[in-house]
Design a protein around this nucleic acid. Structure first.
Length: 491
RNA sequence: GCCUCAGUAGCUCAAUGGUAGAGCAGUGGCCUCUUAAGCCAUUGGUUGUAGGUUCGAGUCCUUCCUGGGGUACCA
């Protein structure tokens, strides 16, 4: 509830609202035809009559004439309004204008004595009266004063954040362009966009804890999807050869700088392809996005990222050697265990080989993968939906993860299409789940039946869209990439 | 989850354990080239919540709430 100070302001504005109506004017208009946006006003338009619509952001009233600033989607511009220009009635209406009101102005472009491009108003229209005041941010020489410093405020009241910090919009405009670029890339390569269920009777396709919900009429629990993989592959079984989905996925896990419970994932699958093809394809996609956004240089959190070279491809063994100096056979449990101990990692001799390798990768390798690098051939134990290597060690798979600036951006593999092997992998997951692994997924008979029906050789990839946006808007906070991040409700 | 810091007027910030204050916004007045407009006057507070210590708490202690920053798990 608002207290007295705020109530006073609101009461005041309600009073003004009443006065405007008494003047026979509707303070909440139905439309307004504007000829320009603020960004289009330039010196060439001096003496031209223009009309603009936007929000009043500052007021400098001087009796019978005033200056004010109006803000629209594109920016801000000053306008000048004088009683002698607009007439007594219209000026009286202006006097009832507050910071935060939407107005339409028409008038000629001119320059003030101080060379400021300004609209000399000949008529002002009230479009929407502000009732609840916006924080008044002052600005001088590009520096802002009284800026709302509270991040919580900015996330909870994103509409105010966008008003006060209009540059915030740029992040989401960029997000839109990134998604557009990806979509057109896939469409141009003959991909079909599909939509699979958010509500799933059984979850899978990733290792994560799901959200649970209930359908009343069916009297059945459903899970919010943690991935789209198992459905998309059923479409490949059904005869689609190239499919993708841009999906909101949900994972019931912690919230931090780089995790939001609902996030946007791109998954795509292409029949008759393997992971080698997909690595090239993803590389092309990333380079196209960067090009479409016209980003010559990319820096993230102080790191300069070079997108001009071919992305490196390295096995875990090679990377462990490069980053820890230990040249070992990563199929050898005791050798890997010794490296963990030498690196002072918290591991137990009982840990599986895959866990030990993962630990080294996570602690010592991945954070240092700054330039685009494909980590390839993951242990089969942590890759339950990937095919094993066609040559070499069958404990490792044809899988890749793309790392940039220490973050994972893509995860793909030659999809497992051997139904016998796939069933065995599901059974392993199921055992892990029974053993208390909350992130292991249950057996999905429907999916297995599809694989038994026959899935062509296929390669698939998942890309975390929010992460990609973070990279390209240069932020360490996923909340800057997600316009309405998940927050705890206030009690 | 754990550790840690923070929360005072609509906004930005003050206030040795001793009367809660300023600027902006708001309101009233003056003002036809201002731009963090200016000048004069003025309204506005259950100091996040609930307890405790004390003659006295915004300040010290405890609880809870919300958030920030770390850290663990996960994309």
């Amino acid at each position: 509830m608002e207290n007295k100070s705020l109530k006073q302001i609101i009461d005041n504005r309600l009073e003004k609202l009443k006065k405007i109506r008494e003047l026979g004017i509707e303070p909440y208009a139905y439309d307004y035809d504007s000829s320009h946006h603020t960004s289009e006003i330039n010196e060439k338009l001096i003496d031209t009559k223009v009309s603009l619509a936007g929000r009043v952001m500052s007021l400098r009233k001087m009796g019978k004439a005033s200056f004010a600033n109006i803000q629209d989607q594109e920016g801000r511009i000053q306008f000048y309004i004088a009683r002698d220009d607009v007439g007594e009635d219209n000026y009286n209406l202006f006097k009832l204008t507050d910071i935060g009101d939407f107005v339409g102005i028409e008038g000629k472009v001119f320059k003030t004595k101080t060379d400021a491009l300004t609209i000399k108003v000949s008529h002002l229209t009230i479009l929407s009266k502000n009732i609840k005041p916006i924080p008044d941010v002052k600005e001088k020489d590009g520096e802002k004063y009284n800026l709302v410093s509270d991040k919580e405020f900015r996330y909870r009241k994103r509409f105010l954040d966008l008003i006060i910090n209009p540059e915030t919009k740029n992040n989401y405009i960029k997000r839109f362009k990134i998604i557009n670029s990806i979509r057109s890339f896939l469409n141009d390569h003959g991909y079909i966009e599909v939509e699979t269920p958010v509500l799933q009777p059984i979850y899978g396709g990733a290792n994560a804890k799901p959200f649970t919900t209930h359908h009343n009429a069916l009297d059945q629990d459903f899970y919010l999807r943690i991935a789209t993989e198992l459905y998309l592959k059923q479409l490949i079984v059904g005869g689609f050869e190239k499919v993708y989905e841009l999906s909101k996925d949900f994972r019931n896990e912690g919230i931090d700088r780089s995790h939001n419970p609902e996030f946007t994932m791109l998954e795509f699958y292409q029949a008759y392809s393997d992971y080698n093809f997909m690595m090239d394809f993803v590389e092309q996609m990333f380079k196209k996005v960067v090009k479409d956004l016209d980003m010559k240089k990319i820096s993230w959190d102080g790191h300069k990222i070079d997108f001009s070279k071919k992305f490196a491809r390295k096995t875990m063994g090679e990377l462990i050697k490069d980053h820890t100096g230990n040249d070992i056979d990563i199929s050898d449990h005791s050798a890997v265990y010794k490296v963990c101990k030498d690196l002072k990692l918290e591991v137990s001799k009982k840990d599986s080989l895959a866990t030990l390798i993962d630990e080294i990768m996570r602690r010592k390798v991945e954070p240092n993968l700054i330039q685009p690098t494909y980590v390839i051939n993951h242990p089969v134990e942590i890759s339950p939906l990937a095919k094993v290597n066609r040559d070499g060690d069958k404990d490792f798979t044809e899988r890749f993860e793309l790392f940039i600036a220490g973050m994972e951006f893509a995860n793909g593999f030659s999809e497992l299409n051997d139904p016998i092997d796939q069933r065995k992998r599901f059974e392993d997951q199921s055992r892990k789940k029974d053993g208390g692994d909350e992130e292991a997924f249950p057996i999905d008979e429907n999916f297995l039946e599809a694989i038994e029906t026959g899935m062509p050789p296929t390669a698939g990839v998942g890309i975390g869209i929010d992460r990609l946006v973070m990279l390209l808007i240069d932020t360490r906070w996923i909340r800057d990439a997600i316009i309405f991040p998940t927050l705890k409700s206030l009690k």
